[in-house]
Structures are given as C-alpha cells and as structure tokens.
Design a protein around this nucleic acid. Sequence first.
DNA 1: CAGAACATGTAAATCGTTACATGATTTC
DNA 2: GAAATCATGTAACGATTTACATGTTCTG
Lengths: 192, 192
Amino acid sequence: MSLRYALLALLRVGPLSGYDLQKQFHQSVGHVWHAPDSQIYPELRKMEQLGLIVGEEQARGERGTRRMYHVTDAGDQAFLDWMAAPLEYQRVRDPAHLRAAYLETTTPDAAHAFLQQHIVQWTSELAQWTGELARIDAVTNPMLARRLAVTPEKDRERTIAYKRFAYEGLVERAEAEIAWARRGLDLIARMS
Amino acid sequence: MSLRYALLALLRVGPLSGYDLQKQFHQSVGHVWHAPDSQIYPELRKMEQLGLIVGEEQARGERGTRRMYHVTDAGDQAFLDWMAAPLEYQRVRDPAHLRAAYLETTTPDAAHAFLQQHIVQWTSELAQWTGELARIDAVTNPMLARRLAVTPEKDRERTIAYKRFAYEGLVERAEAEIAWARRGLDLIARMS
DNA sequence: CAGAACATGTAAATCGTTACATGATTTC
DNA sequence: GAAATCATGTAACGATTTACATGTTCTG
C-alpha cells in the first residue's frame, strides 16, 4: 500500500511519465521501498481510476505515445492524509535472524558462508545509502533538486534535514547488520 | 517460504500437534517470523502433501481428534538443505523510513506523533526480544528446553550461543530504531 | 454449567514476484 | 542499420492478511 504514497510523493513535485517516474523511483524512493516496473505501471492505472492522478496522453514521434501523470487535489490530499495517519507497521519477518537462531544445525562452513553473504548483502545496501546521502549533500539527486526548486527558501533546510535523517537511519541499520554478522563469524570461529 | 523452515525447525525437536506447534511458534520463532494460525494450519497440510512431515490422527476424548506431526527424513533433509543454501534476501520495503524522508510535508505535530509511535512500536519489540534473551539464559523457553534435552552435551553450548546471537541482533536493531526516532524528535524540535 | 483452552480450519482479497511480451524512437 | 533507451505493460503464481467459522473438552 505504501507504493501508492511513494509514487504520489514523487509526482507531487511535478508531472512525470510512467517511464520517467519509474526511473526516478529506482534512483530515490526505490531504495526504501522496492517495487518492480511490473507493479508500478498497473498501480498508476489504479491510482488514475481512483482519481488520485490524471494521465495525459501525449504523442511521441509518429506513432508512439506516453502518459504524463499529474497529481490531482484528491491525490495531494490522500498523500497528506497518509502522512498524518498512524503508520501501519508490518510484522517482523526476518529470514536472516531466523536462520541465525539455528546455526548449530549446520556445518561451520555453511554458517560461515551465510554470515559472509549477510555482510556482502548489507555492504551493498550500505553503499546505496551512503551514496544517496552524498547525493543529498551535493544536491545531485535529480528528484531532490526538482523538489527544492519548488520549495520555498525557508523550507529547503527542513527538506534536506529530513531526507538526511531518513537515510542516516538506513546507514546505521546496515552498519549494525554488518557488525552483527562479524561478531557471528567470531562466534563460529570460537565454537568450532 | 521461510515459514516452512520455521515450522520444520520446531518439529525437528519432536512431534507436535498443529495446535501445540502454533503455540510454541508464537512463543519462539514467531518473534522472528510472524505468521497467523490461518497460515500455519494450511502450510502444515501442504508440507504433509510434499512428504516433509506426516500427520498422525489421534483420538481425543469421545469425538475430538488432533493430528500429531512428525518430520520425515525428507523433511529433515529439506531443513538442512535450506540451512546450507544461500538465503534469499527480501528487497527493502520500509514504510517508516519512507515516511521519514518526507516529514517536511506534514505538520510538526504529525511528525512528532509518527516518531513517538515508532518508539512505542520498537519498545514493544524490544521487550519481546529482551524477554526471550532472558528466557534463553534461564532455559525457561519450553522449545529450547526440549531442544537441549535431545542435544548431546557438547552441542548445548553452541545451541545456546547461536540463539543468543540471533536475539542479540534483534535487540540491537530495536535499540537503534529507538535511538534514531529520538534523534528525529530532536530534529523536529530544532526545525519548528 | 460456564468459560477457558483445545483443535482446526475456509474464503476472499490484496500484495508482490517472476517471467514473459512488444514495439517505437533516438543515436551512433 | 544496430544498439540503446524509451515506453508500457500482461499472466500466472505464490505469499499474506483479514475476517469469518465451528465444534470439543477440560476445569472450577
């Protein structure tokens, strides 16, 4: 359900085609809420049916077309309502910690490989997020730049501060996962 | 898909009825991998069809029945294979950090309420997990006690160490989320 | 004999993943 | 004219949620 609001957040800055939206999505909000293209396009159609956005069909070359999506007042309000409503938390469902609780059932090699992979996985996420933090600081992120362009001077600082805040949390999370996995590797070494 | 292996992990310790399994589940692995009863019972049936477990129908009083489930060799092997296989990581999908990235679009009050709720949420998870850690140390958790009873002396230390390791990671995660939200509250105070 | 605990689900809807599918236009 | 990029999906399946549904047996 959050996909809808992630998309609205992007479109509120200014109209985008499905394709451009999808690209911006993967470069910004997609780091926090993954969705494949095959979910984005249908969701846009659904949002259009609900009147949250309107799609304006545009010609492109001889035969091609593309739809530019604009947020409607209803869509804007839906986003603001979501922001003001209590967040629906998902239940914990954490395969890595599930497996960690049963590491004694497998070989030290397999346990080692699992934690190594955990480090690889989170190192990759960490790189994404530190990269995004750097782009926030340099105002290199295209969505952020567009957003700041339509933001009154006095609100720019807040916009940047909250973006930083969000990504800092993710960076800390990744660092903690890596530190945890390293401790696990030490534990395996001691136990075997 | 991990639900299957969470259930196998419990059943490998010894046979349980669906009902007992469901209770043990919510008191142990359920803290790491949530599933409602309405998912557990059908999954058990599916696992039985796949030959991973066998259900033995038992009379209970005059008319009642219950199914005791045993892990088959195939089920045991499936669990060990899963433990040895690379873990399938889920894509990031984090509504709290998504919302955090857009806190400037709402009122300071709503932003404040959101982070307060985040603290409440993670404080509750934290309590679950520190409680579980305490039960691990006291060997009060019934599943752990049963598991240790069928574990050779020399492996008990490892079993406990890995359980601790898994829950320590979760405790740190919860503490980090709380610390992050507190920093967010400071930020809101400074920004408004 | 009432209430708690035992015992086991089904149905409908939504969400998300994976694989597949197609064609147009711009750029070198 | 080939490759990259633009542009937009569908179909099938599996996972998850939510709500509903029902009856039995033990304990005080």
